[in-house]
């Protein structure tokens, strides 16, 4: 805590600006341009329990956040932290009812047919076990009503039409100049050489349908998603 106070006392607007420049280059690809969360990284504007300087230096084992100890000097880490601290804000209030949202998720929303939460559901779309930590409310809302806006890497759709006219659509597991591999929504695995099929098309849109519930149902669902912090339930 003392270290934190010292750090805050030392960070000048120039430090914050320098930290922002570094952030834009190294961190924004995952954490978003303004640290509000991005394709792969959590929203950093909501203060977490961990010391950001330590997370930057050591990474987060088991996640895509690697250690940056050898990349940044201590000064640069301090500038990064100064910038992240300058972006902090109060968490957005969640208007809905998480329990009602949970029922929608596993019931009429059909979300569990493709998403995992803990042990439950299916791993066709992204695993949502920790999504409340990884994403801010705005990003969750956008991804729910407009799934095409922020496609998560590794979940691209692909459809293959065979020479006998069958179409197989699913999640791309591999795609290159001469072959394609995919899993269909039943989890079945398919592999093709491209010159042995009629056509292969990468889908530009998400495989996920947009949520079509009422505004209050949407709020309930978002409340449930925000509550998913990876804790044992």
């Amino acid at each position: 805590m003392l270290a934190m106070l010292v750090l805050l006392a030392q960070s000048s607007p120039a430090d914050i600006e320098a930290g922002k420049a570094t952030f834009r280059i190294y961190c924004s690809p995952c954490h978003g341009r303004n640290a509000e969360g991005g394709p792969r990284g959590p929203d950093l504007t909501l203060r977490g329990e961990r010391d950001p300087a330590q997370v930057i230096a050591d990474g987060v084992p088991g996640s895509e956040m690697r250690a940056y100890r050898s990349t940044f000097s201590t000064d640069n880490v301090e500038r990064l932290v100064a910038y992240i601290r300058s972006r902090e804000r109060a968490p957005e209030a969640v208007a809905g009812n998480a329990a009602a949202g949970e029922r929608i998720f596993w019931g009429k929303g059909g979300c569990g047919a493709c998403h995992l939460v803990g042990e439950r559901g299916k791993h066709f779309g992204p695993d949502l076990t920790r999504i409340g930590r990884a994403r801010g409310l705005a990003n969750l809302r956008e991804s729910t009503v407009n799934p095409d806006a922020d496609l998560v890497g590794g979940y691209r759709g692909v459809s293959v039409t065979t020479r006998d006219g069958k179409t197989i659509r699913g999640r791309e597991l591999g795609y290159d100049a001469f072959s394609v591999r995919l899993a269909d929504s039943n989890g079945a695995y398919h592999s093709f050489l491209r010159d042995e099929v009629a056509s292969v098309a990468i889908e530009k849109r998400s495989l996920m349908p947009a949520f079509r519930g009422s505004p209050s149902e949407l709020n309930d669902l978002l409340a449930y998603l925000s509550s998913l912090k990876g804790d044992s339930r």
Binding site: A14, E17, A18, K20, A21, T22, R24, I25, S28, P29, R33, N76
Partner: peptide
């Protein structure tokens, strides 16, 4: 992004998306 010059440090003044 405006970026101060520091000898030996990354000097790209932002990035692309």
């Amino acid at each position: 992004t405006e970026q101060p010059f520091v000898e030996g440090a990354w000097y790209q003044a932002s990035t692309t998306a």
